[in-house]
Simulated assay, not measured.
Amino acid sequence: MSLTALVTGAGGGIGLATVVRLAADGVDVIATDVKPQSPELPAGVRYVPFDLLKGDPAVLLGNLDGRPLDYLVNAAGLALFDRDGSVLDTDEAVWTATLGVNLHALRHLTVAAVPLLRQGRGRSIVNVASTAGLRGMDSPLDAYQVSKAAVVSLSQSLALQLGPEGIRCNTVCPGAILTPMIEPLYQENPDRRTNMEQRTPLRRLGLPEDIANAIAFLLSEQASFITATDLVVDGGWIAQIR
């Protein structure tokens, strides 16, 4: 019997790339997002439109039809670039929305999924955080940064608590990745993209597939002795700002 994964944020970007990678690896994937289903979704993947902020996680997990869960990938994320900024003057609604999606929805789903992960064979959680949760940014996006730092901290705590049961929990921390969420900013300001490429030691932006490959590794048995780890995938960018 194939392993089963649940991937959030699967309507595009990193989440969709992760679904594509896991499906290619023979994993039975349930994909979910508040967005409409992408035409790039592989055949055989079950897509469940779902609002992580408003929906009951038990309803989403009911799509497993009683099967155990092997892998959980929390890839759903929100960054309100046009409204987020310094904590000193950012609107409260930005904090509520950003932490709601990036932290609280992740927490609710993970707590609901743990009993099913206990029954599974893969027993692995990967949460998508960000280098912004590990280091500061040139221009503050405080709600986003705080939410991702909290994901890193929560993931480490879960790893320590669930490790004795054989359940691993890690984060992937992407750097500058060319996702649908960030691409409009580069289209509006091509110099911003060029600057980011030049600041990255590998001299390019990352692709969603780069992060999907890292996620697939951390989920797999090849990473069976890795937990409580933050895997940075950023082309070397973070090494310059320590």
Score class of each variant (00 low, 15 high):
residue 227 T to P: 10
residue 185 L to V: 02
residue 152 V to R: 08
residue 203 R to N: 14
residue 143 A to R: 03
residue 37 Q to V: 12
residue 199 R to D: 11
residue 204 R to F: 06
residue 99 L to D: 06
residue 176 A to H: 11
residue 163 G to Q: 10
residue 55 G to T: 00
residue 223 A to K: 08
residue 108 H to R: 15
residue 65 D to P: 01
residue 239 A to S: 14
residue 222 Q to E: 12
residue 8 T to V: 04
residue 110 T to N: 06
residue 197 E to C: 11
residue 74 N to E: 09
residue 47 Y to Q: 01
residue 206 G to R: 12
residue 139 S to T: 13
residue 42 P to Q: 10
residue 223 A to G: 06
residue 138 D to P: 01
residue 238 I to D: 14
residue 237 W to K: 10
residue 238 I to E: 14
residue 127 N to Y: 03
residue 99 L to I: 10
residue 75 A to C: 11
residue 236 G to P: 07
residue 35 K to A: 15
residue 158 L to Q: 11
residue 85 G to R: 11
residue 51 D to G: 01
residue 19 V to N: 07
residue 92 E to K: 12
residue 158 L to N: 04
residue 195 N to Q: 15
residue 206 G to I: 09
residue 32 T to N: 05
residue 90 T to M: 02
residue 129 A to G: 07
residue 159 A to Q: 10
residue 184 P to G: 08
residue 108 H to V: 01
residue 165 E to D: 13
residue 27 V to I: 14
residue 162 L to Y: 10
residue 105 A to M: 03
residue 60 L to M: 06
residue 191 D to A: 15
residue 1 M to T: 14
residue 83 R to K: 14
residue 193 R to G: 04
residue 168 R to A: 06
residue 99 L to M: 15
residue 237 W to C: 00
residue 218 L to Q: 07
residue 137 M to H: 06
residue 150 A to H: 09
residue 145 Q to P: 00
